[in-house]
């Protein structure tokens, strides 16, 4: 077990539409078993004890599934490890003496609320535009009535695994939400339950994505590389196919 002394260069911003800037902080004697967020806890406790305001950042489950944590670490959303959220990144991947730059998600549709916290409600609105099967409670048939092959079910699961963190948007030079949107569209388009609303869903969700100001996909695939769940850009291809089919067939 080693110890680390680090310099942290962190984006500080007091509120929405307020000016922001980087500030440097020193944290010493860190344990390499710590998670990245536990390292920030140490910094924040230090700041509270100095009577300064701690760094605001979103976080909750700290086990890589809630999708709340969201920071760009040394230029990469969720940091240097592939397939990992910030909360699952551990300090053993850093070296003593490192300077680490920490920024919020950078994307126009995600305005900065404070420090490292951004507003991701546009993603909720994309789901509200059709990311569901219209089935009221109590009207469902027996679960085994519709057999679904293991292959289709696994494919749908791969898409459904999205945690809604927005790293795909933060990674994209166009701030496109295509991977997020495509994942939900594909999950439901693959499954028999999603067929009835297949066309309306893809049209509604894609239009909402555009309305929110997310950019277009230009196939650089940075989203897949940074996605903590490793969701494949193949689903973007599927979304585009679904979208065109829905438009052609009217």
């Amino acid at each position: 077990m080693g110890t680390l002394n680090l310099t942290l260069k962190i984006w500080r911003q007091d509120g929405l539409n307020k000016p922001g800037g980087f500030k440097n902080y020193k944290v010493d004697g860190l344990n390499t078993h710590m998670s990245f967020l536990e390292m920030l806890d140490v910094l924040n406790e230090q700041l509270v004890n100095e009577d300064s305001e701690p760094v605001a950042f979103d976080h909750d489950c700290r086990e890589g599934i809630c999708g709340m944590c969201s920071m760009v670490i040394d230029g990469r959303p969720h940091g240097l490890l592939d397939g990992t959220t910030t909360c699952q990144l551990h300090m053993r991947f850093f070296n003593d003496g490192d300077t680490i730059t920490i920024e919020p998600w950078r994307a126009k549709p995600f305005p900065i609320i404070k420090d490292l916290i951004v507003d991701r409600t546009p993603l909720d609105r994309i789901i509200q535009a059709g990311g569901y099967v219209s089935i009221n409670t109590g009207s469902a048939p027996d679960g085994n009535v519709i057999p679904i092959s293991k292959e289709i079910s696994e494919d749908a699961f791969d898409a459904a695994a999205c945690i809604g963190c927005g790293a795909c948007v933060a990674a994209c030079k166009n701030a496109s939400a295509s991977l997020f949107t495509a994942a939900k569209i594909s999950q439901l388009a693959l499954l028999p339950q999603g067929q009835a609303e297949r066309k309306e869903r893809v049209i509604g969700m894609v239009q909402q994505m555009d309305k929110e100001g997310f950019g277009h996909c230009t196939n650089t695939e940075a989203c897949e590389a940074e996605c903590p769940q490793g969701i494949s850009v193949e689903y973007i291809r599927k979304m585009n196919w679904e979208y065109h089919c829905a438009n052609i067939k009217g």
Binding site: Y132, G143, I146, S153, Q193
Partner: peptide, 22 residues
């Protein structure tokens, strides 16, 4: 039992057997 039916209908991708059943 109703819960499973409801969730399947919503498109929850539960694990399946090769024959397609849950």
């Amino acid at each position: 039992s109703n819960i499973i039916d409801q969730c399947v209908a919503q498109g929850v991708p539960f694990a399946r057997e090769y024959g397609g059943t849950l």
